[in-house]
Amino acid sequence: MRLKIGILSKRRGHFTGKLKNFFESKGHNTIIYTKENLCINESMLENDLYILKSKHQIPFVYAGFYAESHGIPVIPNTDISQKHKDRFEAYLLIKNAGLLYPKWYYGTPETIKKNLKDKDFPFILKPVSGSGSRGVKVIYNFGDIENLNEDILYLEKFIEGTHYTVYFIGDKICAMEKIPLKNEHSEMTRRELSKEMKQIIMKWKNQYNLLFGHLDIVVEKKTHKHLVVDTGSFPEFSNWKCGGDPVPLIGNLILNEYKKLKN
């Protein structure tokens, strides 16, 4: 069956471009919708399937909800993608899956200064709407808070330990050690997948019925506890070093899922 596929993405190149080429090689008409050409209205209804590559609420998540409300499948599911992007919803996903997460605080700079103590530092400042490393920085003391131009801050306890990005595609899991706070594209080293990490990924994947994605996990130096510090519904897989090209692996998972949803 020849499908009309729309990819909702902030970029045309990188993984998105390769995915488009993959679907076209399989005979499917594929259009990439970016912020330049995505109009969310009845014009979206001409496609059979949407792929939610980017999860910015405006316009991509809204477009996902629009497609789903008209019976057009969106992969990954829009609701779960949106929750990955929202810091509080992501926290609840992690907690409700029975996984550990660092302590966090949310309040105005004045409230934070009033309620926290010097010994509570350092923290990681994170944007409430976001994932990955954009807008993320270490806050070492109250002085660092003074210079921020934000009305409300989300601070997460900095965990001293070893940082990992753990990818999963279907049943394949790939654990990569990374430099703390660096983005997905920075240099990473492949590490053996521990039993504990495998259990975390399987719990996560099964709880939310995910085909692929990633978790950033910090193994705390003192306690050896595994804490989930970031979630991703559709990473670039730029450090996938566990065999096979992630593009056809994911492309085939998406096409199989579409068939399942349609039957």
């Binding site: 302590k103 966090w104 605080y105 949310y106 309040g107 105005t108 004045e110 409230t111 934070i112 009033k114 309620n115 926290l116």
Partner: peptide
Amino acid sequence: LEESYLLNID
């Protein structure tokens, strides 16, 4: 009050 409440899980 939004301006003086520190939200955290504890």
